[in-house]
């Protein structure tokens, strides 16, 4: 199959043109450093979004796990939240939050696309991460809870010291997969302003009338996501072995 592609595609009538505009070595060399530079912004956005997503996801998961009848409104809120933000495409949330909120006429720095873009990513990804945490919490056997309560621990200490540490460890691979997806979705913020790698590639494309910068950008993403994906798979396999 691969061999067929390698052999046949260059025979296509448009190949020389495609090769020139997508795999132009000269353009690649010229734009690659600039792309790497722009990628630092992707990494920065990822770096400050990820801890926020982790914290928000955990809070939403705990809301959904609230047992006391008096806390039912909290629980309902958690359910509505995860349903809504898992149900809407990320790009729509980014558009609505990223253009909508600054559109209220807020002064600097409260109209920054970095700020509202981050909020949009956190809102969306926290919903997914919350669901992962919730599965983790539910996977811890009831007997652990019983043992903790029987020692006189409160419900909140039981969650904090006994259930959560085990649950969070158990869902590390699942969360890693989400954070790999987040790393890619950071590029969507380019639609509301920030000149990160995808946007920078677009700028080069227009300047040089050549698509090679997009290929460069793709290679840079792969250089990060492939090792991360392999590592997540490795963790998952390790857990499976440990449990069997």
């Amino acid at each position: 199959m691969l061999a067929a592609i390698v052999l046949l595609v260059p025979l296509a009538p448009g190949w020389p043109a495609v090769k020139k505009s997508f795999a132009n070595g000269e353009v690649f060399a010229k734009t690659f450093p600039g792309l790497l530079d722009a990628f630092l912004l992707d990494i920065a956005i990822f770096a400050w979004s990820a801890p926020l997503i982790f914290a928000a996801g955990l809070i939403v998961a705990l809301m959904r796990d609230a047992r006391a009848p008096a806390l039912y409104p909290l629980r309902l809120l958690g359910i509505v939240y995860t349903d809504v933000f898992r149900g809407v495409p990320v790009i729509l949330v980014i558009y609505l939050v990223g253009f909508g909120v600054p559109g209220l006429g807020m002064p600097r720095p409260w109209n920054s696309p970095y700020l509202w873009g981050t909020v949009a990513l956190v809102l969306t990804y926290a919903a997914y991460v919350a669901e992962v945490f919730r599965t983790g919490i539910e996977s811890i056997h009831q007997s652990q809870r019983a043992a903790a309560l029987s020692l006189g621990l409160s419900e909140s200490d039981t969650m904090r010291y006994v259930i959560l540490p085990q649950a969070i460890r158990r869902v590390v691979p699942a969360n890693m997969n989400l954070f790999i997806a987040l790393q890619k979705d950071v590029a969507l913020l380019s639609f509301i302003g920030p000149v990160e790698i995808f946007r920078q590639a677009g700028v080069y494309k227009s300047l040089l009338a050549n698509f090679t910068p997009y290929v460069g950008a793709a290679l840079i993403f792969l250089a990060v996501t492939i090792p991360a994906t392999r590592y997540a798979d490795h963790l998952m396999a390790k857990q499976l072995r440990a449990r069997s």
Partner: peptide
């Protein structure tokens, strides 16, 4: 519960 302790069949130690 602080005054009445219980030990279970399956130990239920905290594995972490």
């Amino acid at each position: 519960r602080q005054r009445i302790g219980i030990v279970f069949q399956s130990f239920n130690l905290f594995p972490h």
